[in-house]
Design a protein around this nucleic acid. Structure first.
Length: 935
RNA sequence: UUUUGGAUAGCUCAAUUGGAUAGAGCAGUUGACUUAUAAUCAACGAGUUACAGGUUCGAUUCCUGUUCCAAACCCCA
């Protein structure tokens, strides 16, 4: 176009405008691998203070979903931000490898093929390994930095051994008990379930009212202090008819009022005992209209009264319990200690037998009268029939209520008393110690503390045994008669652990007791249970933090979804307190919410609203996913939708393009030789560095407080406003038109250099791929990767001695905004197009005129107009437009346009050799170059 | 049922802990530029701060109640 175009210094860079992340990121990953970046960083940070974020192990089954991605990315932000702080922040990813879901998968894969337990466990191990490999690849693709070559697996032989040792330590501390008590039991799993494995769903059950006839009517008369009575029953209400075979008592509340009523039944007078508070609802249910209240008493008065079991030849007592309520039912509670925890507890007081007629498969045991072999839920109808036949059934209806289900099978579970191993919450004050320790932990958000306190306060003893194959064995011997642990249990555990270290858990399963116990073996049973997998992951503070050189207990941070208050946070806390005499495994716990769709619904396949991380990566790139995680306040729900991801991609482009422009304007700049010293930099350039300086402090603070969305907002704002709208727009003129090596231009480049040094680091924890890509394009000698760096310390603030101080700049920006508005008005009426076609007059108070006149004739560059004139307010013409504290008049500039810099200047054409140039450009093209001091 | 947390523009987030007209960016609309160009710049709309009360000179902020969302608890009989 113009013969002068080659005299301009237009931006130039190979840094691509478009990220093309799906292609570029894998290349970057490869580069990191080749650099062995993780190890290199460890070496570089060796000896520094550490920050230990301990990875909660995901379960080694299935592809990673967006929740996994959020979790790992948040962890990566923290690890990398700490590293930027100069700390040594190792990250060892882990996997949870044992347990039922893997067994189920393997069973499915094996089909009908019969295999030995050993082969089965080998298959489980192999399956888990494959799953881990796949998940690991996906995690790494997210850009998560860690020791992926050496993760911890709960199925490592060494770890399996250490899990057994951890159990030994907890036994040594006296917390482990063998008990026979009701536990959540899934008959599909054929195993006890942990609290965390139970979820509540609606279920339809039969609700029945059953007569328990009193044995001795005379005794009843005596208790109620009446003359006589006949055909008397206490009525119970239950939603689990199948538990009646195990009934051992009927519980009443000691202080509750009970009434004895009489009514006609088939011409015979019958007496019923019910809680007075529930009388009306019961009678309505039974459709009894005519009745009389014969007498009343409180529950206490009926204690030890003998009742007939409704269909067995068994007498059961009336007992008292505070758990009886008047919320529903009859005020009399059918009590089966083998099928309910409260029944069990109250049963202990009355020495009731703990009868459990139900087998592990959910069917009645062969010796069970009437119901032998029947599946319990199916037996409900049969029980009802039998009751009817015995004329014990008062009422029967369907009820829909919430009921515990197995979280894996989604099937209703039962309470079933079986011999199990427990970690006792009370025996050695585990509960109390845990509650004390919680206070010393830093919970983020704060309400996490209340949540876990509530859970610890209420939780029952932890049933740690499972009746499975693919799990770490409970490696103890129990005396056949006394049930006591072998006196050398701790030594034996260590011996077994050493063998497990060599060949894995099979060492126990295949162990002949005589090998260890000699002749003593005949007196002992070898335990066959495995440990709850929550135990495996719960003791990683011992099996991983304690055993790895680069880690230690307590970890600085555990970071998981809020569901882990009842899972890993709790299992880790309890085991640590148990084995370290009241020490927490972590000093801080951070939780994040779950991902939901735009309407706040959970992601589910059936709703079709699932956004897979693999898809986002394939279509947009991991950095987009990472930026989305950063942009969201993860403390609540984390919303994801295509709209949100589109917005994030836009924001990404802005950040990328700003970086690109910085790089493009650094073309030809060598920081070693071209850098301008702080004192010699132009005022505007110092302002820009000052902005970056203050912003960096805020960004570091936001990283330190895990407020990544604040980092995102601030960085984006900086790119858009401070850089795009203001600084970069203004310096274009200087960058393009001044002489290549002039102070004016080198000063701006110096600022850009400082800023891109800082910006690339700000981005590193979040946009790791992009930040490192930028890094490769920054001029000057530098390390191989920005991941190895710490925050940039070359930024500096404006001070009071600055020629143009911060308050002056603030004023200038206000004026600039007003000028923009005025220019827009001129544009609207087609008086001007570009801002340079205008000149502006500013009318200000004396003080402001003085402030701005410091800039001399360079104010026009800041305003991006061809001329700007400063006047005192009183000189303003009628048509000057008022803004807060000043007036603006903008008009078309009538001079000729310089073909090179596009300013409209009166001196265009003054030089005959360059008839189309302004004086400034002539100077820059043919002279020694213009001098700029401020902007 | 209870407990806890939450609800600010179409989207993502602010609001110095009770202070002035509730702010940014994105998206939208309109325009400019062609020297960041599948880019950039400017202007412009957009809010009953979930709702209803209360305390206060003043409430997005504190209190009470309601609605909705989420999590936990419970749902044992």
């Amino acid at each position: 176009m113009s013969e002068y175009k080659h005299t301009l210094h237009l931006p130039q860079t190979d840094f691509p405008m478009r990220g093309n992340l799906p292609q570029r990121e894998p290349e970057m990953l490869k580069r990191w691998q080749e650099l062995n970046i993780y190890q290199q960083l460890r070496e570089q940070r060796a000896g520094q203070d550490t920050f230990i974020l301990h990875d909660g192990p995901p379960y080694a089954n299935g592809d990673i979903h967006i929740g996994h991605a959020v979790n790992k990315i948040l962890k990566d932000f923290i690890v990398k931000a700490k590293s930027m702080n100069g700390l040594d922040s190792p990250y060892i990813p882990g996997w949870d490898c044992h347990g039922l879901p893997i067994e189920l998968q393997v069973e499915k894969n094996l089909g009908k093929k019969q295999v030995s337990p050993r082969e089965f466990r080998d298959a489980c191990r192999e399956y888990a390994r494959q799953q881990i490999e796949k998940q690991s690849k996906d995690f790494q693709r997210l850009g998560v930095m860690g020791d992926w070559a050496n993760p911890y697996l709960t199925m490592d032989f060494k770890t399996e051994a250490d899990i057994v040792r951890a159990l030994g330590r907890i036994i040594a501390a006296g917390h482990v008990d063998k008990g026979f008590k009701p536990v959540h039991w899934c008959s599909e799993c054929g195993s006890a379930l942990a609290e965390a494995e139970v979820e509540y769903e609606d279920k339809t059950s039969p609700a029945i009212d059953v007569r328990f006839q009193v044995v001795d009517e005379a005794e009843v008369s005596k208790r109620f202090q009446i003359a006589a009575c006949s055909q008397t029953s206490i009525v119970i209400w239950t939603t689990t008819p199948w538990t009646l075979p195990a009934n051992q008592a009927v519980a009443l509340h000691p202080e509750l009022e009970y009434v004895l009523i009489a009514h006609q039944q088939d011409g015979v007078t019958e007496h019923l005992i019910l809680a007075e508070a529930l009388l009306n609802s019961c009678l309505q249910r039974y459709q009894i209209e005519n009745y009389q209240i014969v007498a009343r008493c409180v529950g206490q008065d009926l204690e030890h009264l003998k009742l007939k079991h409704p269909f067995y030849a068994r007498e059961v007592p009336v007992i008292l319990g505070d758990h009886v309520t008047t919320e529903a039912g009859t005020g009399a509670v059918h009590t089966a200690p083998g099928h309910g925890l409260e029944d069990y507890i109250v049963g202990l007081r009355y020495h009731l037998p703990i009868d459990n007629p139900v087998g592990g498969d959910g069917k009645f045991l062969p010796h069970t009268e009437i119901f032998a072999g029947e599946q319990v839920f199916k037996a409900n109808d049969h029980v009802i029939e039998v009751l009817q036949a015995h004329r014990k059934l008062l009422h029967h209806e369907k009820i829909r209520h919430s009921y515990p289900h197995c979280w894996r099978h989604k099937t209703p579970i039962i309470f079933r008393a079986t011999p199990q191993w427990f970690i006792s919450m009370e025996k050695h004050q585990l509960r109390q110690q845990a509650l004390e320790v919680i206070q010393a932990v830093d919970w983020t958000p704060e309400w996490g503390e209340q949540r876990i306190v509530g859970m610890i306060e209420n939780r029952p003893d932890w049933c740690i045994s499972r009746q499975r194959n693919w799990g770490v064995p409970i490696t103890v011997f129990v005396h056949k008669e006394t049930g006591a642990l072998h006196p050398q249990t701790l030594e034996l555990i260590e011996k077994i652990a050493q063998q497990i270290e060599k060949i894995g858990i099979d060492a126990w399963f295949e162990l002949q007791p005589t090998e260890l116990l000699g002749d003593d073996a005949q007196h002992y049973d070898k335990a066959s249970d495995t440990l709850d997998v929550w135990f495996d992951s719960g003791v990683t503070h011992a099996t991983v933090l304690e055993t790895r050189d680069e880690l230690c207990v307590p970890a600085d941070l555990y970071l998981e979804g809020s569901d882990q208050h009842r899972g890993w946070f709790q299992s880790s806390l309890l085991t640590s307190v148990a084995m370290r005499h009241g020490k927490a495994p972590y000093s801080g716990v951070l939780t994040h919410g779950f991902t939901v769709d735009a309407k706040g619904r959970k992601m589910s396949k059936s709703l079709g609203n699932v956004i897979a991380p693999q898809d986002v990566i394939k279509n947009s790139g991991a950095d987009i996913l990472r930026l989305w995680v950063a942009a969201t306040d993860y403390r609540g729900e984390i919303t994801v939708s295509n709209e949100i991801l589109t917005r994030i991609a836009e924001a990404y482009r802005r950040i990328r393009n700003t970086s690109r422009f910085l790089l493009a304007n650094l073309a030809g700049f060598d920081p070693a030789t071209d850098r301008v010293s702080r004192e010699n930099m132009l005022a505007l350039d110092r302002w820009a560095v000052d902005k970056a300086y203050h912003l960096q402090q805020e960004i570091i603070k936001a990283y330190d407080s895990y407020n990544f969305h604040v980092v995102y907002q601030k960085v984006h704002h900086f790119c858009t406003v401070e850089m795009g709208s203001l600084y970069l727009d203004i310096i274009k003129d200087r960058q393009y038109t001044c002489q290549k090596d002039s102070v004016a231009r080198r000063s701006a480049q110096t600022a850009l250099f400082h800023i891109i040094e800082a910006l690339s680091r700000w981005l590193t924890p979040i946009l790791s791929f992009t930040a490192d890509e930028i890094w490769q394009y920054i001029p000057g000698a530098r390390g191989k990767s920005v991941l190895l760096e710490t925050w940039y310390n070359g930024l500096f603030p404006l001070d009071e001695n600055s020629v143009v101080a911060a308050p002056t700049w603030d004023k200038i920006w206000v004026i600039r905004e007003a000028v923009s508005k005025e220019l827009e008005k001129l544009r609207a009426v087609e008086v001007i197009g570009a801002g340079l076609e205008a000149e502006v007059h500013l009318y200000c108070d004396h003080h402001t005129v003085e402030l701005l006149s410091v800039l001399q004739n360079e104010l026009r560059f800041v305003l991006i107009t061809s001329y700007s004139h400063l006047h005192l307010a009183e000189q303003r013409p009628e048509d000057a437009v008022n803004y807060e504290g000043f007036w603006v008049k903008a008009q078309r500039c009538e001079h000729k346009k310089c073909i090179r810099c596009w300013h409209l200047r009166e001196d265009v054409g003054a030089n005959a050799e360059h008839p189309e140039l302004c004086g400034r450009c002539v100077e820059n093209v043919a002279g020694v170059g213009e001098v700029r001091l401020f902007a």
